[in-house]
C-alpha cells in the first residue's frame, strides 16, 4: 500500500513541477511571444544554485567539487535558486530581446543554453561537471524522519502549495493590464511600441518572471531527486516543456496544466511500463520522444490552439450613456453589421 501511495505521490510531484515549468514558459511564450528555446537551462540554474546553497562545504578527498556550499536552510535555498534563474534570464534577455525579430531570439536562447551547458559540464569546479551534484538535503527530512514513501507525500504537499501560488500569480498577471500589454506585444510588437509601450522592458519582465518560475521548478526537482547532472537537462527536456504547452494550449494556464498532465505525466509513465529490451537501452526514451513529437504534430494539425484554447477576456458590463455622441450609433450599426 505504501508503495502505491509513494508511486502516485511521485507522479503528483512531477505533475506539479512540470506545471510550474509550463506556467513559466507560458508567461514567456504564451503571454508575450518570447521564443525561449532554452527553458530547461533555467531549471538547471535554479536547481544547482539551490543545491550548492543547501549543501555543506565541499569535503576534501571525496573527489566532489562545487562552489559555495553554504548549508543554508531550504527556504533560503529556494529563494537563491529562483533569483539565480531570474538573473540568468535577465542576462540572456539583454542579448536576445534587444532585436525585435523572433527568429533571432530563438537562436540566441538556443546558443545561450548551449554555452551554459558547456560551461557547467566542463568546468568541474562549479557543480562537479558531468558528474553533477549529489546528496542535496531534502527540506524537512531531518526533522520529520519519515520513510521514503511517507516523505514523498509530504513533499507532494509542499510542491502542491508552491504550484498553487505560482498558478494564482500567473493568472493574476494574465488578467492585469500588464498581462494585456504582454499579449498585445505578442500580437504585434511594433504596434505596441507605437502606442507608447516600453516593449523591451515588458518583454524583459516576462522573460525574468518565466525564468524564475522554471528556476523554482528546478529547485523542487533537485530536492526531490537529491542530485542533478547535465544528462538530466539536455535540450530534449526543453522540448518536453514546449510540447506540454503546445498540446495543452498556450496563452492559458489551465492549458499548461492539462498539457503537463498529458505529456509529462501520462506519456512519460505509459512508456515507462513498456518491456525493456536490454540490447537497445535507448529504445524506451526514443519511443517516448517519438510519441510526444507525434502528439505535438497531431495537436498542431487538428487543434492548433491546444486542448484548452485561450479564452476571450471578459469585462464586467458597462452601461452605455446614450448622449449626444452616442446618438449616431443606431445609424452606424447597420453598416458595420456585415
Amino acid at each position: 500500500m505504501g508503495v502505491v501511495i509513494g508511486y502516485i505521490a511521485t507522479l503528483g510531484v512531477y505533475f506539479c513541477i512540470y506545471n510550474i515549468f509550463a506556467f513559466g514558459l507560458n508567461i514567456q511564450f504564451g503571454y508575450t511571444g518570447i521564443l525561449d528555446f532554452t527553458v530547461i537551462t533555467f531549471m538547471a540554474v535554479g536547481g544547482y544554485l539551490a543545491g550548492v546553497a543547501a549543501l555543506g562545504p565541499e569535503q576534501p578527498g571525496t573527489d566532489i567539487y562545487y562552489v559555495l556550499g553554504l548549508s543554508l536552510p531550504w527556504p533560503v535555498a529556494l529563494l537563491i535558486g529562483a533569483a539565480a534563474a531570474g538573473a540568468v534570464g535577465y542576462l540572456i534577455g539583454l542579448i536576445a530581446l534587444r532585436r525585435l525579430r523572433s527568429d533571432y531570439l530563438a537562436i540566441v536562447t538556443l546558443a545561450a543554453g548551449s554555452i551554459v551547458y558547456g560551461i557547467v559540464g566542463n568546468d568541474t569546479r562549479l557543480f562537479d561537471g558531468f558528474e553533477g551534484l549529489v546528496g542535496v538535503p531534502q527540506p524537512l527530512s531531518g526533522v520529520l524522519n519519515l520513510n521514503p514513501n511517507d516523505y514523498t507525500v509530504v513533499f507532494l504537499a509542499l510542491c502542491a502549495v508552491i504550484m498553487a501560488v505560482c498558478w494564482f500569480l500567473a493568472n493574476r498577471l494574465y488578467k492585469s493590464p500588464l498581462g494585456r500589454t504582454m499579449r498585445a506585444i505578442r500580437e504585434d510588437l511594433e504596434v505596441a511600441e507605437a502606442y507608447g509601450k516600453r516593449t523591451f522592458r515588458v518583454r524583459m519582465s516576462a522573460m525574468v518572471i518565466g525564468s524564475i518560475y522554471v528556476g523554482i521548478g528546478g529547485v523542487l526537482t533537485i530536492w526531490f531527486v537529491t542530485s542533478l547532472a547535465p544528462a538530466g537537462w539536455g535540450t530534449g527536456e526543453t522540448f518536453v516543456v514546449w510540447a506540454a504547452l503546445i498540446v495543452g494550449g498556450r496563452g492559458n494556464n489551465l492549458g499548461a496544466v492539462v498539457g503537463s498532465f498529458l505529456v509529462a505525466v501520462l506519456f512519460n509513465e505509459a512508456t515507462r511500463f513498456l518491456p525493456a529490451i536490454s540490447s537497445l537501452p535507448n529504445l524506451i526514451p526514443e519511443i517516448r520522444n517519438i510519441c510526444i513529437g507525434g502528439l505535438v504534430i497531431l495537436t498542431l494539425w487538428f487543434r492548433p490552439q491546444g486542448v484548452v484554447a485561450e479564452r476571450k477576456a471578459r469585462f464586467f458590463v458597462v452601461p452605455l450613456q446614450h448622449g449626444t455622441v452616442a446618438g449616431s450609433a443606431a445609424a452606424e450599426v447597420a453598416v458595420s453589421g456585415d
Binding site: 494585456r180 499579449r183 500580437e187 509601450k197 496563452g251 469585462f315
Partner: peptide, 17 residues
C-alpha cells in the same frame, strides 16, 4: 494592424498610456 487575438474591446484597453 489590429492585435488579432485580442478582443475588440481589449484592443482599445491596451491603448491608454
Amino acid at each position: 494592424r489590429e492585435y488579432p487575438q485580442l478582443t475588440v474591446l481589449e484592443n482599445l484597453m491596451v491603448s491608454p498610456q
